[in-house]
Each structure stands twice: as C-alpha cells, then as structure tokens.
Amino acid sequence: MLNTVLVIAVALVSLALLLTLWRLFRGPSLPDRILALDTLYVNAIALLVLFGLLQKQSVYFEAALLIAMLGFVGTVALAKYLTRGDIIE
C-alpha cells in the first residue's frame, strides 16, 4: 500500500512542479517569477523526500537540507535586489 501511495504522491508533486513552472514562464511581474522559484525549491524538497522514501535510503536529506538553505538565501537576495536595487549595501 505504501508503494502505491508513494507513486501517486510523486505524480501529484510533479503536477505541482509543472504548474509552478508555468507560472515561472508566464508570471507578469518579477516578484511573481521569484515566488515561482521559491515554490519550485520547496516542491523539489518534497520530491526529494518522496524519492528517498521510495529508495528506502536516508542519504537524500543532506541534499534536501542544502536546497532549503541555498533556496532561502537566493529568494532573500532577489527580493532585496528588487526593493533596494542592490544586495549588499
């Protein structure tokens, strides 16, 4: 049962990634695109966790932690660039 549910969950999260990608390409303004990138990395963490559960290996969480930290730094830098026109003042 767990394997079936895992496959369904991978399909749902992949659909979520596709919707986010559509917003990334279409997004009328720059904050929309940054928000789409932010959602993209959160969804990538979800997909990575599901992949770790499917493979029954806990190695992938290091990668998930790295994505979480670097994604946050990237979002903050981009948002700060939009508000201030500069990242480090």
């Binding site: 049962m1 767990l2 749902l12 999260v13 986010t20 959160v42």
Partner: peptide
C-alpha cells in the same frame, strides 16, 4: 498512518501550486 500523511502532504503541495497558477493578482 504513513500513507495518510504522505497523501495529505502531496495534496496540499498540489493545492499550493494550483493557487500559485490560478489566482489573479500577486
């Protein structure tokens, strides 16, 4: 319990992305 948690998580992730794609202003 694990299956319920996984399914709930995937559905909520999908709902968040649908909201991102469908709603009308930033």
């Amino acid at each position: 319990l694990l299956s319920a948690l996984i399914l709930l998580g995937a559905v909520f992730t999908l709902i968040g992305s649908i909201g991102l794609a469908r709603l009308r202003d930033f």
